[in-house]
Design a protein around this nucleic acid. Sequence first.
DNA 1: GTGATAACCTGGGTGC
DNA 2: TGCACCCAGGTTATCA
Length: 284
Amino acid sequence: MPELPEVETVRRQLEPRLVGRTLVAYAVRDARWTEPRSPNEVVAPLVGRRIEGFHRRGKYLIWEAEDELFLLIHLRMTGNLLYDAPEGTLYTRAHFGFDDGHDLRFVDPRRFGTGWLLAGQSELDAYLDARLGVEPFSDGFTAEHLRRLARGSRAPIKAFLLDQKRIAGIGNIYADEALFRSRIHPLRQAGRVTTAQWELLRDAVVDALSAGIDARGASIDDFRDLDGARGSFQDRFLIHRRADDGCLECGGPIRKILAAGRGTYVCEHCQPRPRGARIVPMTR
DNA sequence: GTGATAACCTGGGTGC
DNA sequence: TGCACCCAGGTTATCA
């Protein structure tokens, strides 16, 4: 599932290939991609405009065109951007042609991905600020900031990490990996995480995301990079999807439980269960 | 205000 | 073998 590292992987590949290029043609084959706006409303303004850059905020990929036009692309669960993919590539929702003869496809079997156009830096900032909290690779991502955000919260720490309005870019995989690295149980109440644990968790989030970027993302199911290649972070998971294996730290069992409504992997020896936490096991 | 849950969507896995 | 059902999960809306 595309989270921050997967989006960053694609962004880094797009930049050298498409910055300076001009969009000359497009076809949106699934109007749902731009709902509630029409595809023409969202994409037509970009035609004839030079691409100035590709940026990322959380899990959003931002295509910056001339005159401060921004196309926000969200891959959601199964979206992929493919460069020069073969004609007839299945599940192509949008297709972009550039002045150098190359092309880019947005491919998305489950049709959850979105495309959204914003005009002007202030409109972009307002849109993102309303939806996203602190960036994990920014100076503001400190243990003290996290501790303040969580003060009084009774929600499980797993839900806290997944809340994009608090921290931008973490999804199910990297939440599990960061919690295991910091030895915090996913069901611990966010407001009860200690100062020392926030320090560990802050570093664990950065470590897990950095490792994901180094591995060019995780390809459990659908994620592919710009060239259609798989990432390799799934081969380096410490806890996520390892319910059939023993814990790499202690050799104990890894359980799959429900936390924040998501399948969550935990070693309850390394990540002690908080008193009173109610476990909902998952079998699949 | 906060936290939990449903809905969106479809491919793949499971059970009968 | 074929069918029905369940599950996966990022985000948003809705409900308690």
